[in-house]
């Protein structure tokens, strides 16, 4: 029995189906990323889990107990919204105390002690008397996180917690969120549309598209064995080509560039080169198969002396090939 079981959840707004029979099991203490393009229903799923929205059908179990009809207040879930929703007229401390005052079995005294504790945890103690607008984006984000974990929730729900931040802050906070989540051991569902975020942070990833779950698995499983072409394309880059009626896919970095004397599968004329730092991307056309991208280490690219219009020889290791039936594409 999983800690949280989401069974057959379906939700429609007007005529649009936003969630279509979504199933998902979440184990105690793990961090699950829900990854999908904008508008695929991620936020709606999170709101249903939180009890802020009612599903049209399906149920949610917590610890084996049916809580589909439980109110949000009783569920004891902590939420961080995309917009953070910090109360602008309250200080950082005020924001955290706002919810704490309501917790049963928590005296006023304990609430006063609890607030500094979580503020230290997210490293905001010295900013506790500032108002949200006086904080940087990252600090606001951590305030929202502190407010959510102050109530010692059974489960933490994060809706794109990092999407409003710039790249540097984002990668720093990824580590911090992960650290806090580990320290508290709190089960966490995090929604994101950033594949890198999902790959680096998640214990497991749920790939969603158009109201349905496409695949659930560890980052490694999803990257190496994407179950559908959508999952393959959405996470990392993938080359697709047609091979006798069968769709084959291979990651750009798995393709090997070999010398003409070695055994090779294809020859390719280099169309353009793209220097990406550690890697160099080689774009070219395979005869009858369409455009392909090959990633090689930049050292190798230099050693090969690649130029545009040069012809190179490619090997596709069979163990790296992924096959889809043509209808799936």
């Amino acid at each position: 029995m999983s800690f949280l079981e989401i069974k057959n959840i379906t939700k429609r707004f007007d005529r649009q189906t936003v969630l279509d029979a979504v199933n998902l099991n979440i184990e105690r203490g793990e961090l699950v990323c829900v990854l999908g393009p904008s508008g695929c229903g991620k936020t709606t799923l999170l709101r249903i889990v939180a009890g802020l929205e009612t599903a049209d059908s399906g149920s949610v179990f917590m610890n084996g107990k049916d809580c589909t009809y439980m109110s949000a207040a009783k569920r004891n879930f902590g939420i961080v919204f995309q917009s953070y929703a910090l109360f602008p007229n309250m200080t950082v401390l005020g924001n955290i105390l706002f919810g704490l005052g309501r917790k049963k079995n928590l005296s006023e005294e304990d609430a006063r002690l609890r607030a500094p504790e979580v503020l230290r945890l997210v490293d905001l103690y010295e900013h506790k008397d500032k108002y949200p607008r006086q904080l940087s984006g990252g600090q606001q984000q951590r305030t929202a996180l502190a407010r959510a974990i102050a109530l010692s929730p059974d489960c933490l729900l994060l809706d794109e917690p990092l999407s409003a931040l710039d790249a540097k802050v984002r990668s720093k906070l990824r580590g911090e969120i992960r650290k806090i989540q580990h320290a508290l051991g709190v089960t966490t569902i995090m929604v994101t549309h950033d594949q890198e975020e999902a790959l680096t942070m998640a214990d497991r990833i749920v790939v969603m598209n158009n109201a349905v779950v496409e695949q659930i698995g560890t980052p490694r499983e999803i990257y190496n064995h994407p179950a559908t072409p959508f999952a393959a394309n959405f996470i990392g880059t993938m080359n697709f080509y047609n091979h006798y009626g069968e769709t084959r896919a291979i990651r750009p970095e798995k393709i090997e560039v070999v010398g003409r004397t070695e055994s090779y599968d294809f020859t390719m004329r280099v169309k353009s080169l793209e220097f990406k730092g550690a890697l160099t991307g080689i774009y070219g056309l395979l005869p009858d198969m369409g455009e392909i991208l090959v990633d090689v280490s930049s050292e190798q690219a230099e050693a090969l002396g690649l130029r545009e219009n040069a012809t190179i020889f490619l090997r596709m290791p069979p163990e790296c090939l992924i096959k889809y039936s043509a209808t799936e594409v």
Partner: peptide
């Protein structure tokens, strides 16, 4: 005002009345 003020409060178990008086009114 952010639409999620109410959602946040609800999930924290804060009654609507308190959110109204402490957030919506002063804001």
């Amino acid at each position: 005002l952010d639409r999620e003020f109410e959602s946040v409060s609800e999930s924290m178990g804060v009654p609507r009345r308190k959110t109204f008086l402490r957030v919506s009114v002063p804001m």
